[in-house]
Design a protein around this nucleic acid. Structure first.
Length: 433
RNA sequence: UCCUCGGUAGCUCAACGGUAGAGCGGCCGGCUGUUAACCGGCGGGUUGCAGGUUCGAAUCCUGCCCGAGGAGCCA
């Protein structure tokens, strides 16, 4: 009878007995007559210990020479062991090297970010990067569970689109057979507006592409976004959904990914404070806060990274900023009926200086007003005919928002830069690997 | 696109006008409880590229290439 293959994360359930582990050599140490092999299998780490009890001196000498990241299958007896990292240890009885690795380039010591990004395909094997990818997976699952459980339907938006949502200078263009130019989608929003008129409450989840020459810790040229859109919801209903979603995401990660947050050395106290309701301030109030803090800003200016940090530092929860001046926002946002110079929109700034993670608004539902805005913004009307059409056949007030996955993950994980919040980041000066 | 900083051994850095060096990794040896193990030893270089200044350039100057941090814009 064979020994059963187990994953390291299941070891606390198994506790003891003979098991097989399949993985990679993470690290090793040796004292001549005792060899420690730290094995990782993608779900965790366990220390294997090889002694003269089961192996010859020659075999031990060979184990000492197995290069880091060699793949192996081992068999041994599990036992609790306080001296071992993780609390469990494997008394090795068989060690079968599947593939001897060449000298592994990533060491346990410091590397430059350039060196690591160039080897992102290997870097994701490391402990912290591994933890980040697990948190990302949990964040995405939380979002989908939350929306699915509230009656939302997932509607996939197209990636190849005929036109810009908000201007063409920041679009990646490509040749589309005989039909001219096509562009990589910047947002699925306009399609979700169509979909919510079909299905009521919808969302899309997918990549968005921005050809902005942005080079900051908050920017990628390819990032992932969830975009809910709800028919008959106004801008305040919209904000309520946003705060409940963000609360749910944070709770879920705190509950299911505590171990990963520990690996990342994330202080979870600020995350535990993320409980609705979140503060809501107007754009006007935000300007006042900035002026009080010595910023030279005027009504009508947009906020940069520093401004966002100062505003969010006033609160220990995410903060909504609503009612921006219409002229610094896209064409589709619904003006406030009481003050058409401002729109029924909101951004949501994450705490601790992480900045904008959500942008949302109530959308224009009036046919004439939308036509007028498209003209004002100098947009090619032909490309938007289908979108205008939505206002011809049973138009209703509706709202939606977009939440950026990488910024959310970076915030929850406490990362300095969003590039580590995505498996293979795409940035202005990097498309490899 | 603009501003700032950087490029020296496989990696992280030092040398700042006068013989290119250390730690880590690698290789060899030692050690029965290690935790980025430790101890001893050994190899390892077209100083990003092209010019220039100088008796002499990794070091100073010019141009280019590559990258990092940031700005504008945005999630």
């Amino acid at each position: 009878m064979g020994v059963s293959w187990v994953y390291i994360e299941d070891i606390p359930k198994i506790q003891e007995g003979e098991v097989e582990i399949r993985g990679w050599l993470f690290n090793k140490r040796s004292s001549g007559k005792i060899v420690f092999l730290i094995i990782r299998d993608g779900t965790g780490y366990i220390q294997g210990i090889a002694t003269l009890e089961y192996f010859s001196q020659e075999e031990l000498n060979n184990f000492e020479k197995i290069p880091i990241e060699s793949s192996l299958i081992v068999v041994g007896d599990l036992r609790k062991e306080p001296r071992a990292p993780g609390g469990y240890e494997l008394q090795l009885k068989k060690v079968n090297v599947i593939s001897y690795a060449e000298e592994y380039p990533i060491q346990k010591k410091d590397h430059s970010i350039e060196f690591l990004l160039e080897r992102r395909h290997l870097w994701i094997r490391s402990r912290k990067q591994n933890a980040i990818l697990r948190v990302r997976s949990e964040v995405i699952k939380a979002i989908r569970d939350f929306l699915d459980s509230r009656g939302f339907t997932l509607v996939d938006a197209p990636i190849l689109t005929p036109s810009a949502c908000e201007g063409t200078t920041t679009l990646f263009g490509l040749d589309y057979f005989d039909l001219g130019k096509a562009y990589l989608s910047q947002s699925g929003q306009l399609y979700m507006e169509a979909a919510c008129m079909a299905l009521g409450k919808v969302y899309c989840f997918g990549p968005a592409f921005r050809a902005e020459k942005s080079k900051t810790r908050r920017h990628l040229t390819e990032f992932w976004m969830v975009e809910p859109e709800m028919a008959f919801w106004d801008w305040q209903d919209n904000m309520k959904l946003q705060e409940e979603l963000v609360f749910y995401i944070v709770q879920r990660v705190l509950e299911k990914r505590k171990k990963e947050l520990e690996i990342l050395e994330r202080d979870i106290k600020p995350l535990e404070k993320i409980v609705p309701p979140f503060p809501r301030i107007t754009y006007r109030e935000a300007i006042e806060i900035l002026k009080k803090n010595g910023f030279n800003v005027e009504y009508g200016d947009d906020f940069g990274g520093d401004e966002e940090t100062v505003i969010s530092n006033q609160f220990d929860k995410p903060v909504f900023i609503h009612h921006y001046p219409a002229k610094i926002k896209p064409f589709y946002m619904q003006p406030d009926p009481g003050n058409p110079e401002e729109v029924l929109n909101n951004d949501l700034l994450a705490p601790e200086g992480y900045g904008e993670i959500i942008g949302g608004s109530q959308r224009i539902h009036d046919l004439k007003l939308l036509e007028q805005k498209i003209e004002e913004y100098n947009l090619p009307r032909e490309a938007f005919e289908w979108y205008i059409d939505l206002r011809r056949y049973g138009s209703v007030p509706h709202s939606g928002f977009g939440l950026g996955i990488e910024r959310t993950v970076a915030w929850i994980c406490g990362l300095k830069h969003v590039r580590e919040a995505i498996p293979f980041p795409r940035m202005i000066y990097r498309i490899y690997p």
